[in-house]
Design a binder for these strands. Sequence first.
RNA 1: GGCUGGGUGGUAGAGAGGCUAUACAGCGGACUGCAAAUCCGUGGACGUCGGUUCGAAUCCGGCCCCAGCCUCCA
Length: 462
Amino acid sequence: MLHLYNSLTRKKEPFHPLRAQQVKLYVCGMTVYDFCHLGHARVLVIFDVLTRYLRSAGLEVTYVRNITDLDDKIIQRAKDNSESVKTLTDRFIAALREDEKALYVLPPTRCPRATEYIQEMLTLIQTLVEKKYAYVVDNGDVYFDVHRFTPYGKLSKKTVSELMAGARVEIDLHKHSPVDFALWKAAKPDEPSWKSPWGYGRPGWHIECSAMAMACLGNTFDLHGGGIDLQFPHHENEIAQSEAATGEPFVKRWMHVGFVEVNQEKMSKSLGNFFTVRELLAKFPAEAIRYLILSSHYRSPLNYSEDQLHTAGQNVEKFYLALRDLPSLTGKVPTFLNSSYESAFHQAMEDDLNTPEALSVLHALVHEINKHKGEEKAVPLALLLKSLANVLGLLQQEPNEFLRAHHAHETLKDSEIEKLIQERNEARHKKDWRKADSIRTHLEAQGIILEDGSAHTLWRRR
RNA sequence: GGCUGGGUGGUAGAGAGGCUAUACAGCGGACUGCAAAUCCGUGGACGUCGGUUCGAAUCCGGCCCCAGCCUCCA
């Protein structure tokens, strides 16, 4: 039985979808004005693993992850670049798709864009105005009346009075209360705007997710996720808007992914400790990034260092080395292999996606395969390893494809390497160790590692 | 100041009232012409002070320290 931590109750709870065997999941995606960084990648990978896991357990998952293509920063960035909002967002959506693909993140079922759901947002805001949960001010802004929604704060465990006490002094004169938030902002010159009953304007940030989530998944759905920084105010406000409008519960369970930190500080642009997915991919294999993300629990902070990413890569290499040199790894996992590894793996995953534990099971399996290398027994174990690792989106490549990929710069061509190996083996045959070693040293300097087996010599790139 | 989470071996990181986490690094050995990979073995930990208990790193309390949120952020 899968147990997931619910931010709403702050407890691990057994997971029962509203409709048996069908899961509806919404995740807050990117605001597309720049490249994805490791923090974004963490969210992408974690929810990718969740959907892979649920599907592997036979559940049908509708996974919706939105794209915020309308927001202050986007507008600002487009101005800075003197380009249109659309050109800017299209470009970074394309970049996002590339990053996802490179990281073996499966595409969500749907990726709604905020600008395509303006009508749904307007309808929602209108309902809130009618129900007096929202008020229109004379300049055409529409605000949500937080005091009217009594459960406000149930997700972030804040109370309205605490928030009032901590509120900044610069109170927006249009708002009735500093804790109120904008549903609709009156148009400013040079900004994209849409026609509304309150004049031209554009939606506030939070309303888009309520509108898109409910449009795609219904008024009440199973899971809503995102980075922990979205818990307040974004998710709190989503709850308020949605539940005030429909009178129904919005989301059964909330999941929040912890931060990526560098030197025990949150990864952020202002601190300059910011790594984009593409710059990491230029130096490390994608699966090393995935492994790093999965090697800590999704709710804990993930401490990033290049060193650790390197270690993660070594671990992935170790997995591939176990699979290398085994015949026909294409079949299914034999059913007779009712192994304890499989149940241990699932037990770990069922415990709020304990991926570090799951990885340790895979290591045990690797060890078992290595012990039985060359025996028939190794093949079904390897198949099992592959199938379990696939649930985590790991071992997506052929062993040699991974082991021989050049991660840094272009080195020698495969054919040149094989020629040198042949030359070296001739020297070895004549016991000319000096020559053999000099070839090996030469190859090593190019990042090529040789392994002399009893039958032939294997090679890989470092 | 208020509210959340945390503090585990050299590093990263699970677990958890009595039983080896795991990985990387280290050390010894096997294999190898030497390596590499692999195997066998091995040292090393639970912030601090008290309490509960037959027994606590694990439960309770004080203290110290760290991160996050309260403002845009994955």
